[in-house]
Write a protein that binds this DNA or RNA. Structure first.
Lengths: 188, 188
DNA sequence: CGCCGAGTTGAACTGAATCAAGAAACGTGG
DNA sequence: CCACGTTTCTTGATTCAGTTCAACTCGGCG
């Protein structure tokens, strides 16, 4: 659980009292491989910190579904738009490996917002970070080649990427599995 | 200025008092065509509502610069990440036509957050909307062809698109100007 | 009037999509 | 723990959309 505190303390001053209150709301839950955390139509009730594991975000499609994002260890995962607006999700979130989460419910988060000073700062920070990530992603999709995107993903997440089936990575990068197989061959 | 109130009232209940306070902070400013609103390195000081006009967001590149976004009438425009974090922007914002803006400074917005109930709701709402737009954009770049993206842009903004030089649209869609010229020919 | 940037068009090239088949890895039930 | 069937990955051949380089047209502006 110190992981989470460390994570926050990169961005905030967090005193023991605030941390006590915050962490008292966190519930640890473990999920097996291929477990669906969120389905289209469901309303996301959790903001979760990934202690261990990998999850993917996807939208089902006829042939191959569209994997548009991953989340790794030491990061937050949530159907964030559904969570924020408390409206039905439009996509799936699924574990790819055994996954250990620390979960915070929507109601508990609202309470944290109201009862602590740091709450709102944390919430705003989370939104900002997500937004920044999406801008990065937009620029990557517009200006980089699939090969460059693969290399970047690879150099950022060397170990973790090994556990992700190639076809999901291909989709995330924006090419077919065949194309990624060839990219892989020519850069190795 | 009623435009702005209407815009908000699609999402919120806004009483006269709140509106008075909010609108007292808005300053109208007019800009000519090709005016640079924000440069890399500058810190964005404004959140602006576009009464009339079109602006583009871009990053300069060797040959052709990378136009990654537009904003149209009746919408907000801002170097939003720079604005939120009060750190230097990484991109340009430029007017493409004569543009009339209602501007709100960072400090005034902070005051609105503190002094009105509705302030935080508006701020959160803005973040959420931006985030949702970026997810849409991500899915569009991953799953649609340039031709489909062009058609969508075209059907959403028929009139406005006429005023945007083809080469900027091409960049936004993710192809060269030559390719967009051919796409245009084959669908008309 | 002449220049310059923007758009169009052509030709050759390239990287990815598609279709198809085979190899490897994985999971499940006996 | 092996055997089988399914899924995932690889490889090949073909097709296609977009890139690149280049030349030409058009319209606006000094």
């Amino acid at each position: 659980m110190d992981l989470i505190r460390n994570y926050f303390e990169k961005s905030f001053e967090l005193n023991d009292q605030e941390w006590e209150f915050f962490s008292s709301k966190l519930i640890k839950r473990d999920f097996p491989k291929k477990h669906i955390l969120l389905k289209p139509g469901q309303i996301e009730n959790y903001l979760s910190f990934i202690q261990k594991g990998i999850v993917r975000f996807y939208i089902p499609k006829e042939n191959n579904d569209l994997t548009f994002s991953f989340a790794f260890e030491n990061n937050f995962v949530s159907g964030y738009n559904s969570f924020l607006t408390q409206t039905p999700s439009t996509y799936y979130i699924e574990t790819l490996t055994e996954t250990n989460l620390w979960q915070l419910t929507y109601d508990d988060l609202q309470e944290i917002y109201q009862k602590t000073k740091i709450g709102n700062a944390i919430g705003r920070h989370a939104s900002e970070q997500l937004f920044l990530k999406k801008i990065q992603r937009e620029l990557s999709l517009l200006s980089e080649t699939p090969e460059q995107r693969y290399k970047n993903l690879f150099s950022n997440q060397i170990e973790l990427i090994k556990h992700i089936p190639l076809k999901y990575i291909a989709s995330y990068i924006g090419v077919t599995p065949q194309a990624l197989s060839r990219i892989r061959r020519r850069i190795s």
